[in-house]
């Protein structure tokens, strides 16, 4: 495992020097979605809760950066702390209310919250620019240079992975999974799941905010679409495509999704059709994600969160 990781790290570190300009753009996009997917999976893997509201954290951070840069002329990088705070606050509110619910009710409530935020961004012309968005946010220096942005995203991915690793191995991680697998028993032995689940939601949302920040640095703009439910759907697709049970599954899913999209789009306008076919095949034939194609040992699916 160690050697594999080391090889992967070296490859990723020298990768940009062998890519043409467009390949580099695709690589950045894949890394940013990878950060988002890893963060999302922190919640999903450890609690079994399927959030349809992560677009809210992602977009809240993105809009915070965009607004601070465009309205208050902050320097781009300086907005990062506040962007993360915004994502954390949004996650706290959504998480606080939502984790009391389970299964589809949780999913629907997170969806409702993030759609609320979308409606605000979409309607509040004076502040967010409405559907015309906020554009022309060219970050100066490192983040404005494609190679620089690539390395920044790579560092973010390593950082997020490290945090998730620590959480997974921590007592809190074991507690969360115990609650996920058998809430009744966890309760019986005196574990109060609520605080742990809110904490997991907030951490997951905050790290998603990091992805939102990088996304705006990459796109140079922010639009209400960042907050729309399809953004949440995209990250879920990446996670499950890669395999949520595997540590780096979500990141690999993000790479597969982004590269596939770039390739398919350059041949046909029917990308949704192609994606639909891939998802169909995945659900029916290799439910543990693409990562299972490279492994002999089949991992178990994430169990259903019990009612």
């Amino acid at each position: 495992m160690r050697t594999k990781l080391a090889v992967a790290a070296v490859v990723l570190a020298v990768f940009p020097w062998f890519l043409h300009d467009y390949g580099l753009q695709v690589a950045i996009q894949a890394l940013v979605l990878g950060v988002f997917a890893m963060s999302f999976n922190l919640l999903f893997r450890n609690t079994g809760l399927l959030s349809f509201g992560h677009a809210a954290c992602f977009g809240a951070a993105g809009y915070t950066t965009a607004l601070l840069v465009s309205k208050l002329r902050w320097s781009f990088a300086a907005t990062l702390p506040l962007a993360l705070v915004a994502a954390a606050l949004v996650a706290l509110v959504i998480g606080f209310f939502s984790v009391r619910l389970t299964k589809i009710y949780f999913t629907m409530l997170t969806l409702a919250f993030s759609q609320m935020l979308w409606a605000v961004a979409h309607k509040w012309y004076g502040f967010t620019g409405g559907d015309n968005g906020i554009t022309g946010l060219l970050p100066p220096g490192l983040l404005g240079n494609p190679k620089g942005l690539y390395y920044a995203s790579l560092v973010a991915l390593v950082l997020v992975s490290g945090i998730i690793y620590i959480v997974r191995r921590s007592p809190a991680g074991y507690t969360l999974r115990a609650v996920r697998d058998n809430p009744a028993r966890a309760e019986a032995i005196g574990i109060s799941a609520f605080e742990y689940m809110v904490a997991a939601f907030v951490l997951s949302g905050t790290l998603s905010g990091l992805a939102g920040f990088l996304h705006v640095a990459w796109q140079h703009s922010a639009f209400p679409d960042l907050l729309y439910w399809t953004t949440s759907a995209e990250v879920i697709i990446a996670v499950i495509l890669g395999g949520s049970a595997e540590f780096f599954g979500p990141a690999i899913g993000a790479v597969v999704l982004v590269v596939l999209e770039a390739v398919v789009r350059s041949h046909t306008q029917y990308w949704p059709l192609a994606l639909g076919m891939v998802l169909l095949a995945m659900v029916l034939f290799f439910p543990s994600g693409v990562i299972s194609l490279f492994q002999r040992r089949q991992r178990e699916e994430v169990p259903r969160a019990a009612a």
């Binding site: 043409h20 300009d21 467009y22 753009q25 996009q29 968005g133 796109q219 140079h220 703009s221 639009f223 679409d225 960042l226 770039a262 789009r265 350059s266 306008q269 990308w271």
Partner: peptide, 21 residues
């Protein structure tokens, strides 16, 4: 020809592909 899907994010991505690739 590429599809912008009328979504700014998709359009920027596709515009970059057209320019760079």
């Amino acid at each position: 020809q590429v599809d912008s899907q009328a979504k700014p994010d998709v359009a920027v991505q596709e515009a970059r592909r057209l320019i760079l690739n």
